[in-house]
Amino acid sequence: MTANILFSARPALWPVYRPLLSRGLEEAGVAAALDTDLPPDEVDYVVYAPNGGLWDFTPFTRLKAVLSLWAGVETIVPNPTLTVPLARMVDTGLTEGMTEWVTGHVLRYHLGMDAHIRGLDGQWRQDVPPLARGRRVTVLGLGALGAAAASTLARLNFDVSGWSRSPREIDGVTCLHGPQGLERALSTAEILVLLLPDTPATENTLDAHSLALLPRGARILNPGRGALIDDAALLAALNSGQVAHATLDVFRTEPLPPEHPYWAHPQVTVTPHIASETRPETAAQVIVENIRRGETGDGFVHLVDRDLGY
């Protein structure tokens, strides 16, 4: 039997994904019809991104699963018409890219590179950083992305703590969980990395109260989600010196409006949502594997828990 697969994402992605998915499905032994326009009542799987224009899943009466091309699913989960299994993207290429971005900016902060890049104004200041083992880094969120970043930093000998909603175990990382664990994780974070999902429970994780728990002069990296930070509270913490610097890759409104105070703030570095991206070559492999599983009854992977929102 042939599996009918609807590709619903930005049209520009179709020429990229079509050969990758077709080849992968053939190699996996899955007979499939793959297109951007199929009768809804004949579709078995939807390869999906919210910006593809599809929102109403009601007509898809034989749908087996929706397979997201995005790691974040906060815009998909609330859809009341989506009642079949939803799988988020857990992509090795995306994970590697995020780990590289986080590691690079942690090292930048750790080594004090900004001062040398901007220039020392003729002053011979020999501010030697500690070794990595003397620098405390905290990663909030220990899913696939957070765990990979924390592990890499630990292998570089940073003193790494990580926090998650539920217990985790990662070699070389002090893993904390629960409300008390969060306070402890924040209290030691000289460099704080935010890699939590965007859910009602994580919105404004960094507010005035939690920012005050950080060691004075802490530095913040947010490649996770814009809603994790109370922007007004962060700006106040930057202005008071409680936070020395923030590098932000994600924002509540994107692109970040030209008038937003982050652009002009001397203690903020803005990067335009480039920390990582789904890589078609590896993402196609994830999609193919889930379709194969759906056709053989092995059970889908990376399924979203609707109650938790990720």
Rank of each mutant, 00 (worst) to 15 (best):
H245D: 00
E27H: 06
E183P: 11
T152C: 11
D121K: 14
D171T: 11
W101S: 13
P280V: 01
A148W: 14
P280G: 02
R125H: 12
T92H: 02
G146F: 11
E254F: 13
L196V: 10
R136A: 15
A9V: 11
L176H: 03
A132E: 06
F300M: 11
R108F: 15
V66A: 02
R108Y: 14
R118V: 07
E26P: 03
A185F: 00
A232L: 10
V286F: 01
G104D: 04
T138P: 14
F60P: 01
H265T: 01
L38M: 04
L303H: 09
A264E: 08
S161A: 15
G93I: 05
F158V: 09
G241D: 07
K64D: 06
F60Y: 08
E42P: 01
G297Y: 03
T202G: 02
P215H: 07
R62N: 05
L248N: 06
V160S: 14
L182R: 07
H209C: 12
H245I: 00
G141Q: 10
P50T: 13
E42N: 03
V270F: 13
E183N: 15
V90Y: 07
P258K: 06
V73L: 11
D298H: 10
L195S: 08
L6K: 03
F57E: 00
P257C: 09
E277A: 09
L54C: 01
S164C: 04
R136M: 02
T95Q: 14
L176R: 13
T174L: 15
T83M: 04
V46F: 00
A189C: 14
L111F: 08
L34I: 07
I76K: 09
D198S: 13
V16N: 09
D307M: 02
S151G: 15
H116S: 06
T205L: 12
A227T: 09
T95V: 15
T2N: 11
V270Q: 08
V286A: 14
S68F: 09
D307P: 04
R225V: 01
E42F: 00
L303E: 09
S151M: 07
T61Q: 00
Y262D: 10
P85Q: 07
R118Q: 13
L142Q: 13
A149Q: 11
P78V: 13
V286K: 05
T95F: 02
H273C: 06
P255I: 03
L82E: 06
H209P: 04
T36Y: 08
L221G: 09
E183S: 15
S68I: 06
S8K: 09
M113G: 00
G224C: 05
G141L: 05
A49Q: 08
A31H: 08
A12I: 05
G309T: 10
V30I: 08
E277W: 14
D231H: 07
D35W: 03
Q267H: 13
G53D: 08
D41K: 12
G134I: 02
E203L: 12
S161L: 10
P130N: 14
H265P: 02
W124F: 14
L21F: 00
A212S: 15
D198G: 01
P197G: 03
V84W: 01
T269N: 05
N51W: 00
V268I: 06
C175V: 03
T278C: 07
